[in-house]
């Protein structure tokens, strides 16, 4: 066996030992590990203890609350109240509601991958009438049970973290997304800058290179070397 062969063999043996010992080491770690055990129950139920707050990483979205905050209207002027997220019937009082289609009023929401790719209809997630607001306590779409009542119908085993996937994704290029989904906005633009930078550098470079070689000819392209 050669020297490098022995080294490779030794590496493989060490890796195998580390692999086997990993299970023992795992058994001895802290049960309250932030990453491994602690969040499991909370993530799968969506319930957090009173003294806990919803983890920050699940709150990537800064949702604007228009209108007078948290006013629940059952009065005649309810249709004028713009924050309908806590209503049992979020379309309560809207005129000619039963004559309208979802995309008439929500054209942007109708353009999403679940609709355009998986051929889902709005009602397959949002349910039949009345469609409750997403913050209405008993709504299936309420984040405390959305994963179980909505997502898990197709995505078996979906947890509360999974349910924070944004189906109605904002356009990441827009400046308004910087306010509502900043991570997506910044990652998108960083990737675009990397891509554009690559082409800004290499497209002119390669074009000039091609032209130069074409003009110089194959023989005289490069410095002639007499010594070889």
């Amino acid at each position: 066996m050669t020297g490098s062969g022995k080294r490779v063999l030794a590496c493989l043996v060490v890796m195998a030992i580390m692999w086997i010992l990993a299970a023992q080491a795992r058994a001895q770690d802290e049960a309250a590990s932030h990453l491994l055990r602690y969040r499991d129950r909370e993530a799968s139920t969506g319930y957090y203890e009173e003294y806990e707050v919803m983890p920050r990483h699940l709150r990537a979205f800064i949702e604007p609350r228009p209108g007078p905050a948290d006013v629940v209207g059952y009065s005649p002027n309810a249709p004028t109240i713009r924050d309908r997220t806590r209503l049992a019937d979020s379309h309560y009082g809207i005129r000619f509601y039963d004559r309208r289609r979802c995309e008439t009023c929500h054209p942007e929401e109708a353009r999403n991958l679940h609709t355009t790719r998986a051929n889902l209809t709005c009602r397959q997630c949002h349910g039949g009438e009345p469609i409750p607001g997403s913050r209405y306590y008993y709504a299936p779409m309420n984040p405390i049970r959305r994963h179980a009542y909505i997502c898990a119908k197709c995505h078996q085993g979906a947890n509360a973290s999974f349910a924070t996937y944004r189906v109605h994704e904002p356009n990441p290029a827009l400046l308004s997304t910087q306010a509502t989904f900043p991570v997506l906005f910044w990652v998108f633009w960083i990737m675009i800058v990397i891509a554009a930078g690559t082409f800004l550098l290499f497209l002119p470079h390669t074009a000039l290179w091609g032209i130069r070689e074409l003009l110089a000819g194959k023989k005289g392209t490069h410095r002639e070397r007499e010594d070889q």
Partner: peptide, 17 residues
């Protein structure tokens, strides 16, 4: 579903882009 246990679900929006 498995990856949403490691990263928040909205990370999949980012990952897709």
């Amino acid at each position: 579903v498995a990856s949403s246990r490691m990263v928040p679900g909205w990370g999949l929006n980012v990952a897709l882009w």
